[in-house]
Design a protein around this nucleic acid. Structure first.
Length: 577
RNA sequence: UGGGGAAUUGUGUAAUGGCAGCACGAAUGGCUCUGAACCAUUUAGUAGGGGUUCGAAUCCCUUUUCCCCAACCA
């Protein structure tokens, strides 16, 4: 290697070792470049454009977070816009839910709540303009005829017999379409582009169709409705959007997006496509989610097993955790599938910092402390959140008879089992050290009761002589325990990708029959029952997992949804044998 | 059999001709009044083949695989 070249390399190295800017993903890079070149006058304005025909899911969250982040990180603006151009599928119910979900996620559209339907007149005027330019025509073909004339991948389509109508005739017909003179499906307005284009989207695409239906906002004012390709670029243009971010399947549509805006000579935003989110063990298409709801496979859009925003919310996911997840998965053009454990870890990380610790026993087993005074109750201090001392301490009642978790006792325990087993001393969290003496069994050999004795000197959970115990278990005083229903959720599907070709059956065949387990009578400490109102707090049931009061929960009838379990190293050890 | 995209450790994502890095997972150890959290260490990658170059994940050629497109849906 020559000296000079060594020198070059060294300089490069110096450059690289300088403190580097945050690494940008490809959309951030495009925006940074545009700001540098002054392409949009340094402006950044994004939007999230849902069609109100279903509930938002985690995939939409990726898009919302992306668009909102691009705006806020660049001192820009973010619009929420309903793409309500198809009255047949859209409903106010969906508008309401979308508003709630976007707000919950924390994306703030300020005063820019937009509706495509507000632009219908303007779009109509633009269409008239296009007709006058000889770039659009009214076509009388039926949908079937049009499909047959579209051609194939290798052969061009055949031009519509109506393609060369005069401007006057087109203007007249289009006005009469608008006036409602023609039945559904009898005529369309089409762009006159290129029937031989290798891109089907350019083979004279439909701009307007006739639909005599009630629109959720404009009522029966309109008899014609714009198609997506025609409408979307106009919506972006009208709102002054700079970067129109959408998913990969619209890549083929970009030439058309550009064509319409160019023909009109109006303000022209830039469409950028990224890969939509796929998650293991679930489905993400609106059609399939709708089917799960309508078919009663789940309890509703907000069933905590659903990947919908409202389902995640009801399950106990926080907006912070969903945002952190969206940040973690990145943005690219590669069609990837994210392991659902990434989502689970995101909520664990957030809830570990913030959730209030409580004790609850899912599968109760009676523990009797033989040497503890009958009828006595002590109120012991328990830390609310060791990750945040400011959350303080609460009192937990302790007495002679307790409930512990069935799996925290084993009569014949393997060596690595640190919990209760005859002869072993463990700590009752925040209470006392107890040593197991014996157990009582029923006729079938099931353990019904465990007996132990305690060391009064270990009150609060510390041994004055400094002796250690390997295991600490949670408990609830039997006398003070309150009943709660606990719902344990598992993945909705039993295979990683219910949609994949490697799983040839209908996706519903792969529904996980054990995705919901209801525990009718869990035993929880009083503070949990008192804090069981919906939305009151996120909890960690110590050593078990994170739980969140269900929307049906009341103080008198507590219901907790398990958001996610704690990581369980012991389960792995036990499984290995 | 046309057009448009894409391929980097198990997963996801950087490196824009110059040390293949980061996160998550996993494994191991430490710590611990949660077998959690936390800390430390380890693990493992440029789809294949050619070429250009002092030097290629990056540029060129070629092969393979995957995704999207022929709704009056978005």
């Amino acid at each position: 290697m020559a000296q000079a070249q060594e020198g070059d390399r060294f300089e490069k190295k110096e450059e690289n070792s300088a403190p580097r800017e945050k690494q940008l993903h490809f959309i951030e890079q495009i925006i940074a470049d545009d700001e540098k070149s002054g392409k949009f006058g340094g402006r950044v304005h994004t939007r999230f454009p849902p069609e109100p025909n279903g509930y938002l899911h985690i995939g939409h969250a990726k898009s919302i977070c992306l668009n909102y982040a691009m705006a806020t990180e660049n001192n820009g603006l973010f619009n929420l816009r309903f793409d309500d151009t198809n009255p047949a599928k859209e409903e106010t119910e969906y508008v309401e839910s979308i508003l709630t979900d976007v707000r919950w996620l924390g994306a703030d559209w300020q005063d820019r709540l937009c509706f495509a339907s507000d632009y219908f007149q303007q779009m109509y005027d633009y269409a008239v303009d296009l007709i006058k330019k000889g770039k659009a025509y009214v076509c009388d073909m039926t949908a079937e005829e049009m499909s047959a004339a579209r051609g194939t991948a290798t052969e061009p389509g055949t031009p519509s017999p109506w393609r060369d109508r005069t401007v006057e005739e087109n203007l007249d017909l289009f006005a009469r379409m608008k006036a409602g003179e023609f039945p559904d499906g009898s005529k369309t307005l089409r762009a006159k582009i290129d029937m031989a284009s290798p891109n089907f989207n350019m083979r004279d695409p439909v701009m307007y169709r006739i639909v005599h239906a009630e629109h959720h906002r404009t009522g029966s004012a309109w008899k014609i409705y714009p198609m997506y390709d025609w409408a979307h670029g106009l919506e972006d243009s009208i709102e002054g959007i700079t970067h129109s971010i959408c998913t990969l399947e619209f890549e083929n549509h970009r030439p058309l997006y550009d064509w319409f805006l160019d023909q009109l000579g109006v303000y022209h935003p830039q469409q950028i496509e990224f890969a939509r989110l796929n998650l293991t063990y679930t489905v993400m298409s609106k059609r399939k989610l709708l089917e799960l709801v309508k078919g009663g496979y789940v309890s509703g859009w907000d069933d905590p097993r659903m990947p919908t925003i409202c389902g995640l919310r009801r399950r106990g996911y926080t907006p912070e955790s969903v945002r952190a997840f969206c940040r973690a998965i990145g943005v690219a053009k590669f069609n990837s599938t994210i392991d659902v454990t990434v989502l689970e870890n995101a909520v664990r990380e957030d809830l570990n910092r913030t959730a209030l610790r409580r004790m609850g026993v899912l599968r109760p087993l009676k523990l009797v402390i033989d040497n503890y005074p009958e009828g006595e109750t002590e109120w012991l201090d328990a830390v609310n959140n060791p990750e945040n001392p400011a959350d303080g301490v609460r009192k937990v009642p302790f007495s002679k008879v307790l409930y512990i978790e069935q799996e925290d006792f084993m009569e014949d325990a393997p060596k690595k089992y640190f919990r209760l087993t005859p002869g072993r001393e463990v700590r009752l969290r925040y209470a006392y050290f107890v040593t197991c003496d014996s157990c009582v069994k029923d006729e079938e050999g099931r353990v019904t009761e465990v007996h132990c004795h305690y060391d009064p000197a270990t009150r609060g959970g510390d041994a004055p002589d400094g002796r250690k115990v390997r295991g600490t278990i949670h408990w609830v005083s039997a006398e003070h325990a309150r009943d709660a229903q606990v719902r344990l959720y598992d993945r909705l599907f039993s295979v990683e990708n219910p949609d994949s070709a490697s799983n040839p059956l209908d996706y519903k065949e792969y529904l996980n029959p054990e995705s919901l387990e209801v525990i009718a009578h869990a035993k929880v400490e009083p503070a949990l029952a008192d804090g069981a109102a919906p939305g009151s707090a996120h909890y960690q049931f110590e050593r078990i997992g994170y739980f969140y009061p269900d929307t049906e929960s009341t103080a008198g009838n507590p219901v907790f949804n398990r958001t996610v379990s704690l990581k369980d190293t012991w389960a792995k050890v036990a499984q290995k044998g």
